[in-house]
């Protein structure tokens, strides 16, 4: 059972990674916490659900959903962050305004779904199981692990090796210096919000599919985990977020499997405190981070 539980944890963790990457990316670039990230994730699942039941092929529904959540995230930037960004001490007002956007999106979803739990129709994705060295693994789990691995690699390549990625990191490090070098910070913000939103949307679809459940509050537990991931991994660090997500997924699986019920959250936060005790800046601290330091 141990290896099976580690596999379960890795699958859950890889979806946490998808979710947390966007969150940490926005934090890295803006030094602002986007509380509406959970609602964006939820919106991804909702949009793909309604596309699917109205007859759109599933892959197209995913694509449409990612595009839509990318745009929602841009809207969040324009509504909740843009005006605040230009003033000092934006952290708290931005936090409040993003919570506001979160509440609006959640209320809309509650109305649309009439508070019901939705799920993708049976057969949206083929249910197949494979026996791999005594491990029971579903086709969906394999696809999720592969998709997340490819996307994470693509994101890292994008940030590290492309001109746009350099601009993102330049803005993250020092927005004013970047502007003096010709970097259009507004456009960088819009693009990072789009990427973060699209990744969150995809995570929503995958979670909705993997765990047969789409509901208006589904973003909340993931937001809480994203905080843990971002703190354990190191604020703004992409690699840190990935490692911490997988660590969190596996820890959680093992805690459910081997410890008395109800201790899971205590264990997760215990892990958080332990990491902070040994490495106050998180596993990947500021070294190699996409961005470090505080908002300027």
């Amino acid at each position: 059972m141990l290896s099976q539980q580690i596999l379960n944890g890795l699958v859950s963790g890889s979806v946490y990674a998808l979710f947390s990457l966007g969150f940490t990316l926005i934090f890295g670039v803006q030094k602002l916490l986007n509380f509406a990230h959970g609602a964006t994730f939820m919106a991804g699942a909702f949009i793909a659900y309604y596309c699917t039941i109205s007859g759109l092929p599933f892959l197209l529904a995913i694509g449409f959903s990612m595009l839509a959540t990318g745009l929602i995230a841009i809207l969040i930037d324009l509504i909740a962050f843009r005006t605040l960004r230009n003033r000092g001490n934006a952290e708290f007002p931005a936090l409040v305004s993003s919570i506001g956007v979160d509440l609006i999106l959640v209320s809309i979803a509650q109305q649309v779904s009439k508070t019901q739990v939705l799920n993708f129709p049976f057969g949206t994705f083929p249910i197949k199981f494979y026996d791999l060295f005594g491990l029971r693994i579903s086709l969906l789990q394999i696809v999720i692990l592969a998709v997340v691995a490819v996307l994470v690699a693509a994101l890292i390549f994008y940030l590290r090796k492309t001109t746009f990625g350099r601009q993102v990191r330049a803005v993250a490090t020092n927005e004013r210096a970047a502007a003096l070098l010709g970097v259009n910070a507004q456009s960088v913000y819009l693009q990072t919000f789009f990427i973060a939103g699209a990744l969150a949307g995809l995570a929503g679809v995958l979670i909705g599919l993997l765990f047969n459940s789409i509901q208006f509050l589904m973003g909340e537990p993931y937001m809480l985990r994203a905080f843990v991931v971002v703190v354990i991994g190191g604020l703004g660090s992409v690699q840190g977020a990935i490692v911490a997500s997988l660590l969190l997924g596996v820890t959680q699986s093992l805690a459910v499997a081997y410890l008395p019920s109800g201790l899971t959250d205590a264990i997760i936060f215990g892990l958080l405190f332990l990491v902070l005790l040994v490495r106050p800046n998180g596993l990947f601290g500021d070294i190699n981070a996409v961005a470090g330091g505080t908002r300027q």
Partner: peptide, 22 residues
């Protein structure tokens, strides 16, 4: 033999399911 509590907003029961199934 076992007592487990889930939260109303939870949907990931993979670890719990493996534990109970085995």
């Amino acid at each position: 033999v076992s007592q487990d509590g889930v939260a109303l907003a939870d949907s990931d029961f993979s670890a719990l399911a493996t534990k109970i199934a085995t």
